[in-house]
């Protein structure tokens, strides 16, 4: 059938991306102060090699690699889901202030002394604030959200979350805690343990499952909310589930990694032409691309020579913001048209 033409390449792409993510993960496991070859890495993973190699691979680098792919994947998935929900290529968690809000929730917990950086209170607070931010944003934007409205509201919310975080740090009596928070906010996957994986993964998985379950609704939403509703889709419910899914994924991610921006914007954009612009088929490739991007970025911060370590969140923003500018230029006409 004609319709199958679009399915085959997207299957090939999925397999290709999975291979890419695995390869990058292997490189990630081999990268660091002690460089190890992929063969050594695989060997150590399955119990071979020296005791030191095993410790490095399995206890130091494996959690980091798992977190990079899981967080990258859920960010890519969240971006694709938000874009599908809002039918808008500029929608993404970081532009909507979701990570910033989640960070505020987490920082508040730390500053109030209610939680240390390894407690479940952190992701829960992060998820709650991420939910509030996306919910408020979608309420402001209304049913037929135009580009301009979404971006302005997102700007306002991320600024507010940033300001609230600053206020917390401002009022915090402990300068050392502040320094720690400030670095954590930059976004990093360094020195993460399996404890962190356990902390984030359940939330990330729950969020991903929620978003994935809504995929066919995104295709119907291509025809607008009213038509989607006339096709039997409960649009209000889809919205709520997507907001919850994004909040769970982003909140869980931020709680262990700090804010890592723009993966959710870049990943769906790269994959959209590949899947024939179908917002439902976009989800899986976007997630895999997100995983590949963040893993690659996390390798890059370990390779780039510098006096001090570069935070991966800083790197994704440095690459992501120019990309965002490029998208704005491309969407210039729609933006100039106001609330289209």
């Amino acid at each position: 059938m004609v319709s199958q033409s679009a399915t085959k390449p997207s299957y090939t792409i999925t397999v290709g991306l999975v291979v890419l993510v695995v390869l990058l993960a292997l490189v990630s496991l081999g990268t660091g102060p002690v460089r190890l070859s992929p063969v050594t890495v695989i060997d150590a993973l399955f119990g071979g090699g020296t005791g030191a190699q095993q410790t490095i691979i399995r206890e130091i680098r494996l959690p980091r690699a798992i977190l990079a792919s899981a967080i990258g994947a859920v960010l890519g998935l969240s971006g694709a889901a938000l874009q599908g929900l809002l039918r808008n290529p500029l929608a993404s968690p970081s532009l909507f202030g979701a990570p910033q809000s989640a960070a505020f929730g987490a920082v508040l917990m730390i500053a109030l002394g209610w939680a240390d950086v390894r407690s479940y209170a952190l992701p829960v607070a992060g998820i709650a604030m991420a939910f509030v931010s996306v919910f408020v944003l979608l309420s402001i934007a209304g049913r037929n959200a135009g580009l301009l409205l979404l971006i302005l509201a997102g700007l306002a919310i991320s600024s507010l979350a940033g300001a609230a975080t600053s206020l917390v740090m401002n009022l915090s009596p402990n300068p050392f805690a502040n320094l720690e928070i400030a670095f954590w906010l930059l976004g990093s996957l360094e020195d993460r343990s399996f404890r962190h994986v356990m902390l984030a993964l359940p939330f990330i998985a729950a969020g991903a499952i929620l978003l994935w379950s809504q995929r066919s609704a995104f295709r119907a939403l291509s025809l607008g909310e009213e038509t989607a509703q006339s096709l039997g889709i409960d649009v209000t419910r889809v919205r709520l589930l997507v907001i919850t899914g994004v909040a769970l994924g982003v909140g869980g991610a931020v709680a262990v990694s700090g804010t890592i921006g723009f993966i959710g914007l870049v990943a769906p954009h790269l994959m959209r032409p590949v899947v024939g612009y179908d917002p439902a088929r976009l989800l899986l490739p976007s997630a895999l691309t997100g995983a590949a991007l963040l893993t690659a970025a996390d390798i890059a911060v370990r390779i780039i020579p510098s006096n001090t370590d570069i935070k991966v969140g800083v790197l994704t923003s440095i690459i992501g913001v120019p990309f965002f500018l490029y998208l704005i230029v491309r969407e210039r006409r729609a933006l100039a048209g106001g609330v289209a």
Partner: peptide, 9 residues
């Protein structure tokens, strides 16, 4: 139609 989908889809 918000995305450039194929007619048959």
């Amino acid at each position: 139609v918000h995305w450039p989908l194929q007619v048959r889809d």
